[in-house]
Design a protein around this nucleic acid. Structure first.
Length: 594
DNA sequence: GGCTGGACTTAGTAAAGGCCAC
DNA sequence: GTGGCCTTTACTAAGTCCAGCC
């Protein structure tokens, strides 16, 4: 037990600053008594750390004015802008090729904010955005990008080294006994806000963050990071009830932004583990909860019925909770509790199925959710009731919100909230699908295809979509031509085998036959691998697997599956993912059950 | 109970990095 | 050695949920 306390002190390299030089469990020093965080004792509820030391954030590089020969034109005439106005103009110029800059809201918001940065002279001259010509500036930036690509190896190496230096210096902190990677140690640079979907604030100026905006959080007994020369921090605090190292308030929504630790850190990993444990507890009582909400569909109280129907959707369709949002401040998106009458259509009968509900709404990130779902008769009748005498823009569940729902869930199981259903249903689906789809006789690529299909089932359930890659068609065609070539090669190899066999009869040369046989086998395997790859890619065109993999699937299920079938874990998780899920890789055995 | 701010998780896209066929 | 493609990482927006206030 004492090893835990001293693990960070043992380091045979005896550096000048042992505390900052020790590997803290990363394995890069000679220390052999390192204990992983998941083997350590947990802190009491609410306490997040005892010691925290870091170097503070990295600020965005200062604005570099454009060279004299890069011109901005207003109403056809060259105009020299003040530094501040020029900086904001470059933000627009850099986005010129993007569809964003053609949108009216974007242009209006941009122009309004840009004018605030202008001198009074500029303000009186520049009165219309459509008379502004940013094309020269835009070309300049494109040329810069091109030049960066064309840089010599040495120059590229120099930049890489500089980045590494920055990462080494600012990218890590010490939290208790561990040296931990920081997720986002760089402050967001100024620019134009690009919301997702139809965001009313798109195009607004995201202002530059200064040290005076920054709150530093670290422990009292640590070395407080110094602010840049000539500046001071807004505040230095020592709050060990939170996990963040740095925070500031952004100017678009007035919300707080944070610098926090990497997913591989103890503080994130422990929480992640806990999340899956909560989902596993739900597994134990989900049947009871389901029976309960079925009963509640018949309740005399409207509120209870609405709650029960909403919970049914959250459970069956893995919908998000759906908090209320401030109108006009963000894009108009909804989740379960905030669904409106206009988002569903009821079909007593559709395509041979009874009681079909057609969902069509924009969810998180303005991703469209479209689904036709047969539901139980009681649900259907309830929905008809909820929609009675309502306008399309009225709330479907007018007696319900996420707070009411979560309070109820809390009563059903400690720690239960709406999002736990998503985690639970995602993980249980993966486990079931893996059981169903894995064929013991398959080779490794085929097994991995099965894994991806199981993963895909979850991604579809959670509606994780992506824009089809721009080069999708082309890359499919490339793959197809590879397959065709492989097929020809196989045909050749088979012919050769045949003639070798014929030869062998005459000359009794079995050796040649054997080697030709092997060649055929090898090519067959290669062909199959390519075909599997093509199937996988086609099925994945519009589906993003990574979100569910990273956030919803208990990693122990995947680790156990790999162990059971002898699949190298690297085939399922890349390096970053293995770091994030190190706890699961260490813990889960092949018989792990979610 | 409603409202708000704060903390933290989840999300898709753009840019960077790395790898492989040529 | 390099161009082009695919994978990974960086970035930051947009959710969820809770606590504290009235």
């Amino acid at each position: 037990a004492d090893i835990r306390k001293v693990s960070f002190l043992i380091n045979t390299t005896a550096p000048a600053e042992p505390f900052l030089e020790c590997c803290y469990g990363t394995g890069s020093c000679f220390c052999s008594l390192v204990v992983s965080w998941w083997e350590e004792e947990r802190y009491p509820e609410g306490i997040k750390w005892k010691f925290l030391e870091h170097k503070g954030p990295v600020f965005a590089p200062p604005y570099e004015p454009l060279p004299e020969n890069v011109k901005f034109y207003y109403d056809g005439k060259v105009m020299k802008l003040s530094t501040k106005a020029e900086e904001v103009a470059t933000f627009f110029a850099k986005m010129l090729d993007h569809e964003y800059t053609t949108k009216e809201i974007f242009r209006k918001n941009f122009f309004k904010d840009w004018r605030k940065e202008m001198t009074s002279e500029e303000k009186s001259t520049i009165t219309s955005l459509s008379k502004c010509d940013f094309t020269h500036m835009s070309q300049y930036f494109k040329a810069q990008t091109e030049a960066r690509k064309q840089m010599s190896k040495e120059e590229k190496q120099k930049i890489k080294e500089e980045n590494e230096r920055l990462l080494k210096e600012y990218g890590y902190c010490v939290m208790d006994n561990h040296k931990e990677r920081i997720a986002n140690f760089k402050i967001e640079p100024p620019g134009l806000f690009r919301g997702r979907g139809n965001h009313p604030k798109m195009g607004m100026l995201k202002r530059r963050i200064m040290p005076e905006d920054i709150i530093i959080n670290c422990s009292k007994d640590s070395k407080v990071p110094p602010p840049p020369p000539g500046h001071k921090w807004k505040e230095v605090r020592h709050d060990n009830k939170v996990t963040w190292l740095v925070s500031w308030t952004e100017n678009i929504q007035g919300s707080i932004k944070y610098i926090m630790l990497n997913p591989s850190s103890r503080i994130k990993g422990e929480k992640d583990w806990q999340k899956y444990e909560t989902a596993r507890r739900l597994k134990k009582c989900v049947d009871k909860i389901r029976n309960q909400y079925r009963e509640d569909w018949k309740s005399k109280e409207m509120k209870v019925r609405q709650r029960a129907v909403a919970l049914y959707f959250i459970d069956k369709l893995a919908l998000r909770a759906g908090n209320e949002k401030e109108e006009g401040e963000t894009a108009d998106t909804v989740g379960c509790c905030s669904l409106r009458v206009e988002h569903i259509k009821l079909h007593p009968e559709l395509d041979g199925q009874e009681y079909v509900v057609e969902f069509d709404f924009l969810g998180k990130d303005s991703i469209r959710y479209y689904n036709k779902v047969p539901v139980e008769k009681r649900v259907f009748k309830n929905l008809q009731l909820f929609m009675e005498n309502k306008q399309p823009e009225d709330d479907l569940f007018d007696r319900l919100n996420t707070s009411i729902l979560n309070k109820h869930l809390q009563d059903l199981m400690e720690g239960l909230t709406a999002k736990v259903f998503r985690t639970y249903n995602a993980s249980i689906t993966l486990q079931q699908q893996l059981k169903e789809l894995t064929n013991p006789d398959d080779n490794i690529p085929a097994k991995i295809l099965s894994y991806n299909r199981a993963n895909r089932a979850v991604a579809i359930l959670c509606n994780h979509q992506r824009a089809p890659p721009k080069t999708f068609e082309k890359s499919m065609m490339n793959l197809q031509s590879k397959i065709d070539a492989k097929k020809e090669q196989l045909a050749d190899a088979r012919r050769e085998l045949k003639s070798a066999k014929a030869d062998a009869k005459v000359r009794r040369d079995e050796k040649a036959v054997e080697s030709k046989k092997k060649a055929v086998q090898r090519i067959e395997e290669q062909l199959m691998k390519l075909e599997v790859q093509a199937t996988d890619r086609e099925e994945n065109k519009q589906i993003a697997l990574s979100t569910s993999k990273l956030n919803y699937l208990d990693p122990r299920i995947s680790v156990a599956w790999c162990k059971k079938w002898g699949i190298p874990i690297e085939k399922i998780y890349n390096k970053t993912q293995r770091e994030k899920f190190a706890w699961a890789i260490d813990m889960a055995e092949e018989d792990y059950e979610f």
